[in-house]
Amino acid sequence: MSEAHALKPSPARWLVVIFPYVWLTLFFLAPFLIILKISLSDTAIAMPPYTPVFQGFGAIGDFISQLDIENYIFLTDDPLYIDAYLSSLRIAVISTLLLLLVGYPMALCMARASAGIRPTLVMLVILPFWTSFLIRVYAWIGILKPEGLLTLLLQTLGIYGPDDQVQIFRTETAVFIGIVYSYLPFMVLPLYAALEKLDGTLLEAASDLGCPPWKAFWKITFPLSLPGVIAGSMICFIPITGEFVIPDLLGGAETLMIGKTLWTEFFGNRDWPLASAVAVILLLVLVVPIMIFQNQQQKAEGK
């Protein structure tokens, strides 16, 4: 009922809005427009390796005539890029499913734990999230590489012979392990938030009405936790699609991911317009999941 603008908004109040608005427009929105423009530019030999955008603001006509879609045509011509996009999406989908598979039971057990230890459990999930992403991925190299600790463990247990080595490092499997490991807190926390506020008496009521526990889970718990499932999946799926560090450090040459391709185009081949085109298409691919995520957030905010 009571709303902020019930009072006549004094002009000073708008300063609150203006500072973050201007900052984000300048450093988040404007860069996207630039990336769009550059993806339509020619590659130039000079440094910076593209034809500059702002050669005076008067050159609007030039601006339009300079646009060309050759970079995009190049992207569709070379199967490398299409494969990288598809492969990224495939890895992101599988990773998200794996994360749900690991994260959901974990979140459920956390929500079912006694109220006294729940805050500690949440703390334990958050703690790794506070430690460096890079470090956490790095930690797996030592474990997974052929002469690494996993091999050592299996050899000690007698499962592997002294000359056998674990061949996971620099494969897609290693990428999946790294992703699940790194993104698990992002999946567990929204799931836990949704499951924790679930009213325990609902399950008692279901049980009272003759519904066995496993059925009650599918009929009551799971449907009510869906907002958490969607939020967690989006929070993981979107960044995983553009992931760079994990496939770069744990994946092999055959692990194609678009984030890595972009990085190579940019830092390796120094083809900025092509890198921009790759980014624009990646963004387009992710528009739908981002919209879903935003929608969810706004719904949560409206509550």
């Binding site: 427009t25 860069p31 990336i35 553009g242 984030g259 940019f266 921009s276 981002i290 995520f293």
Partner: peptide, 19 residues
């Protein structure tokens, strides 16, 4: 505005960085 607040949370870092 709210889009610009939420989008960077999930935006792949390569895109944010490049742009």
């Amino acid at each position: 505005f709210s889009g610009m607040i939420y989008a960077p949370l999930v935006m792949p870092e390569v895109i944010t960085g490049l742009s």
